[in-house]
Amino acid sequence: MLKFYQIENFFLNGWKLMKFFFRVICMIMTALIFACTNDIEETNGNPSTINGLIDFEEVEYFTEVIGQTVLFDIDKADLNDSARYILISQAVWLNENNEYTIFITGYADEQGTRGYNLALGAKRSAAVRDFLILNGVKEDRLQTSTFGKEKPLKICSSEKCYSANRRAVTAIRRD
């Protein structure tokens, strides 16, 4: 919990500075990622289009650069460090883009009974929701749901798939 509040305080104190740096870092990261993987295409239509470079304001920035999915440990709904990292980025983006409502769904791997996994998925989506709220996202924009072990992302029966299925996904919709 200590760690949790440290992050919160940091944000309250250095919120604007952080946002600025974050945006800069994100833009650089995006540019680097796509500079490495995508060449600039010659386009006949719109010459200003650079394939792959996504503006911070774009939905794709949220879904592809930041990422919608955070993962959980077995039978846990606690947010680990990498989940927090993603969720902080999500919060920054969501706070900048107020016109979106947010729908968080929790999932579980197939180990465990149906009812328990529904409850576990609910707990995971609630953990994400609470963390976003702590990081400034307005509560009335957020809704949570659970699919339990329904709708696995990957369907092998080993940890490789299970770890991908223990997730919470933040979906956004423009009102």
């Binding site: 709904a77 009812g115 529904l118 409850a119 609910a122 707990k123 609630a126 609470d130 659970t146």
Partner: peptide, 9 residues
């Protein structure tokens, strides 16, 4: 039945 509200079921 089970009811989930917030993080609690």
């Amino acid at each position: 039945f089970s009811l989930s509200a917030g993080s609690n079921t």
